[in-house]
Design a protein around this nucleic acid. Structure first.
Lengths: 166, 166
DNA sequence: ACCATAAGTTCTAATTTGGAACTGTCAATA
DNA sequence: TATTGACAGTTCCAAATTAGAACTTATGGT
C-alpha cells in the first residue's frame, strides 16, 4: 500500500491516519495545542530536524489542519495556527494523553493536569455515546457497513463470525 | 530525538505515541478491533509487508497491548488478542474514526456506522469532561504542570503568555 | 513424494529520516 | 561599513526504515 492511497481508502480511520498518523505529526500537533506557532519554536521544543518539520507543517497546511498567518512583513514571517479542522483533532490528542495517563505514568505521577474552564475542575476526558451518554467500550459497539463502504473481504467475514460468537 | 527515548519523555502523549504512533500500528489496531487475530489475516487485509507486520505485532505485545494466545499445538500457532490495556485504546481509535467521518468523507457517505448495544442506536463518539459531562473543546481547557512535570522551556513560557492573552 | 497452511525470517533496493551546513531577507550593533 | 543575529526554510550525505519477494520450519493431507 502506498501512503498517498491511504487517504482514498474507504475507511475513516485510514483517511485520518493519512493526515496525522506519524510520530512527528502527532508531536507537532501537541505543540500546536500548547500554542507553539513558529518554525524555530517547534524545532526547539521538539528536537525535530528542520527538514522533517518543514515537511510535516506543509502537509498539515495542505490538509487544512494548520493555516499560515503572517505576523510581520519584510521579511515576511508566518505563524502556524490551528484551523477549526485542526481544533477538531482535540479529542484525538486528549484520548492519546488519557491513555498515557492511565497506562504509561511513572512513580512521579502525571506530567500534566487539565482544568475545565467551564466547571473549574481538574478532569479526565471521557468518551461517551452521543445518544445515551454512557461511556463507550469496544465490546458494547456493533459495526455496520455504511453507504460509503465496499463489500467486506473474506478476512473480515471470518472476523464477523467471531464477533457473532462472542 | 531517538524513538526509544520517546517513552521516557515527561509527556503522556509522547509516551503513548511511542506505542501506537505510526501508520501501520494504527491500522493493525483497527483490524484488532474488527476482530482480526492471525498473522496472515492481518497481512491479507492490510497489504502490510510481513517484515513490518512481525515487527509491529512484537512491539504491541511488548507494550502489553496484545497477547499471544495459542489456538493449536503441533505446530504451535498463536492468535493476537487485545488485552485490557489494548481495549483501553478504543477511545483513541474512535476519535480518529470520528474526525475522519466529519472531515474526510466523500460524496458516498461514511464507510462504517456504529451501533451502541446498550441503547440500540447509531451513535457518534463524543468526548466529555469527567466532572461536568460537557463536551470538551480545546479552548475550554487550561493546562497545569502535574507532579511528573519538569520545568517548562522558554518556548513554552512564551506560549503560556499567548494562552493568557487569548 | 508432493502440495498446502501458517507464522515468521532473510535478502536487496527504494524511501525516509537524522544531522549538519547553507541560503535569503532584514534589523541591530561595532 | 562590516558584522552579527533572527527566522524560515533548503540542500547534502549518511544512517535507518520500509517495500517486495523469496526462503524456512513444522505439520497434515492426497
Amino acid at each position: 500500500m502506498k501512503w498517498d492511497s491511504l487517504e482514498d481508502e474507504p475507511c475513516s480511520l485510514a483517511r485520518t491516519v493519512a493526515v496525522i498518523g506519524d510520530r512527528w505529526t502527532l508531536l507537532v500537533l501537541r505543540e500546536c495545542f500548547l500554542r507553539v506557532r513558529r518554525f524555530d519554536d517547534f524545532e526547539a521544543s521538539l528536537g525535530i530536524t528542520r527538514h522533517v518539520l518543514a515537511d510535516r507543517l506543509k502537509k498539515l497546511v495542505r490538509f487544512g489542519v494548520l493555516r499560515k498567518i503572517p505576523y510581520q512583513e519584510a521579511p515576511r514571517r508566518d505563524e502556524y495556527i490551528l484551523t477549526q479542522r485542526g481544533l477538531d483533532l482535540y479529542p484525538i490528542v486528549m484520548s492519546i494523553v488519557q491513555w498515557g495517563n492511565v497506562h504509561m505514568v511513572d512513580s512521579r505521577g502525571r506530567p500534566m493536569l487539565h482544568e475545565h474552564k467551564t466547571c473549574k475542575k481538574m478532569f479526565d476526558p471521557v468518551m461517551v455515546c452521543s445518544e445515551c451518554g454512557e461511556p463507550l467500550t469496544a465490546k458494547a459497539v456493533h459495526v455496520h457497513p455504511g453507504p460509503g463502504a465496499r463489500q467486506s473481504s473474506p478476512v473480515h467475514a471470518k472476523a464477523q463470525e467471531r464477533a457473532k460468537r462472542d
